[in-house]
Design a protein around this nucleic acid. Sequence first.
DNA 1: ACCTCTTGTTAGTTATAACTAACTAACATA
DNA 2: TATGTTAGTTAGTTATAACTAACAAGAGGT
Lengths: 207, 207
Amino acid sequence: MSGRQSAEERKAQIVAEVLRLADEIGPDRLSTTDVARAIGLSQPAIFRHFPTKGALWLAVAEDIADRLQRDWVAAEGGASEPHARLKALIGAQLTAISATPALPSILFSRELQVDNQALRDVFRGLLGAFQSRLVAVINDLQAAGDLKRDVSPEDAAILLTSLVQGVAIRWTLGARGFSLPQEGLRLFDVQLALLNAQEDVCDEKTG
Amino acid sequence: MSGRQSAEERKAQIVAEVLRLADEIGPDRLSTTDVARAIGLSQPAIFRHFPTKGALWLAVAEDIADRLQRDWVAAEGGASEPHARLKALIGAQLTAISATPALPSILFSRELQVDNQALRDVFRGLLGAFQSRLVAVINDLQAAGDLKRDVSPEDAAILLTSLVQGVAIRWTLGARGFSLPQEGLRLFDVQLALLNAQEDVCDEKTG
DNA sequence: ACCTCTTGTTAGTTATAACTAACTAACATA
DNA sequence: TATGTTAGTTAGTTATAACTAACAAGAGGT
């Protein structure tokens, strides 16, 4: 349907379509025929732009990685104090997942888990990078005295990423019957209240 | 290889093999040929015992559901006080996942997410049942004054299942480089310390 | 020993996957 | 306007998927 395009544009279009269709029909069932038909190209045209299907998936992963990292930078840049920065990071992640709902399924696709080691590496790196950012912000929070010190920053970060993953799983299995960012941020507030230095209040009274 | 068996036994054997192979080569890539070869049967023999592949998956899901529920009952039965019961429940879940490592992938397989509504229902019910058990125990804990009251039992249960799911995801993506029950229970202790009624200590001092 | 049901086989069918070979039409530029 | 490059096509190939039809052999009851 759409006329002849530059390779650059076409590649981006194919990647975007893969992400959309991966959600619709599942990452592993997604065939190059599906992608081509959705765009309005012949199936072999896909292989003009990507040598193998694995290479296509890798391009998709890199697209996701780029967008996520931009989101993180924007989130951290938009907030100055640590608490707001932490909440913005979590919020960005939740928003990114709900904007790319295929993400959880891709994490457990055979393409990633079995076939494509490179794909696996990209996502492992991504999760690690997110974790590191969280740890850094949590360190700041503890330094400012706004967070319990008897929980290590690493564990606190793990609890928060688990929160994101848990709510994302519920969202996916529950046919997305609620707003992922809204419910996620609500639980974030609950968890952060727990992580808050309650004993400080206590110390103030007793000290 | 193994001689002729009763349908009952063969069915169980096929189901067990599906679970093993689903982990090895991914739930969606798993073919009836793979299952048959692993057992030492011809491929059509599978269809003697299950009318369609979807029916086979449903049998697998019911097998998982039965075992999980037995595990929960055993865990709750083995501990009398609420705190121990809660920890036993979480521990049982972690142990079950590490004994059936294909579980997380199955949750996101196309078979479940796209093709097989019945399969989806089974797992939705399972997660709901686990959640309900957690809520009940947490209610007991709060009634006994052993848990903060400013977090709803539902939210506390969500935080704990998220913890399990989060650590399971890390375990899966990280090529299972650590003991899932061990790390999971460690984080459980961290989270439960947070959920503990710290302000009680405070009240004792101030009251 | 024979009959019968059940569990298995072999040999297909049909559909769909990734990928290739060979050719064509649009565009850029000398 | 001629020419080389690039984005596209159609028509295959090869492999593998689920599933079927028709036939064979083992085990139990009479």
